[in-house]
Design a protein around this nucleic acid. Structure first.
Lengths: 129, 129
DNA sequence: TGCTCTGGTAACAATTAGTAACCAAGTGTG
DNA sequence: CACACTTGGTTACTAATTGTTACCAGAGCA
């Protein structure tokens, strides 16, 4: 075996393996550049595609589309087409998505509360290097 | 102007703009594929590089290295070289990193609690499509 | 007529992540 | 002795993901 990258089966996991895998899977699912940002934006109320794009920031149409598709697939948001002159599409959090907002806000609040410590740590690291 | 992708300055943000940007920045910082997984693994105690790699799962050395470097830079983990025969390197959460574990565990717990609903939503979407 | 808006999509470019090999010093195996 | 294997990486190359740009279609407006 010459420095293999692949991981072989690991028998002795500390916590229930399938639960761990499930969490890991979900964390991987939400750990992309836009998902949390989009959920947070929709947490303040339903938004149309363009409004959401303005709200989130520098997200491209393509990535916003694919992020929303995946959130839809996971049951976090609904997509409603409003048949106006140029048809508009409204995105809103489902009950599940709204509940998910709680832990997400938890992170956001933690970040705000600890911003001083984070900045201090970063400054200190920059100083050491 | 022909379908510009760039976003122009947006004056009327609902919440304090700089706070929002700070949160967005931090969310972007932790929303990569491995950060949350690594923090969660180190939450159970300090681990050496290889042990951590086994714990996290299918992460490549390269990505684990860069993830750990960024966590170090943000003051979430410490890196300690143990001068043994082949020198070993131990990674551990700092106080800041340990505190961060709380909101991260919040997400993990939410996922476990709501796994039934998530699975149901996914199945329902798969059925509709 | 020309330019705007709507919510996308397709083709291509740029960035990022993953893979495989390598390093160097020391241990164990045949 | 020669080989394999350990440690924590780095490097070069490739694969996958993201971002950019242009385009669609139908209506509004000057």
């Amino acid at each position: 075996m010459v420095d293999q990258e692949g991981t072989s089966p690991k028998p002795g996991a500390r916590v229930d393996t399938s639960t761990c895998e499930y969490i890991g899977d979900m964390l991987a699912r939400i750990s992309d550049k836009w998902t949390l940002l989009v959920v947070r934006s929709l947490g303040r109320g339903p938004l149309r595609f363009s409004a959401l794009r303005r709200e989130v920031g520098e997200v491209s149409k393509k990535m916003l589309t694919s992020t929303l598709r995946e959130l839809e697939e996971n049951g976090f948001v609904t997509r409603t087409v409003i048949p106006t002159r140029p048809p508009q599409v409204e995105y809103a959090l489902t009950d599940l998505g709204h509940d998910f907002l709680t832990p997400v806000q938890g992170i956001a609040e933690w970040v705000v509360k600890n911003s001083t410590r984070i900045d201090a740590a970063r400054a200190s690291y920059a100083g050491r290097v």
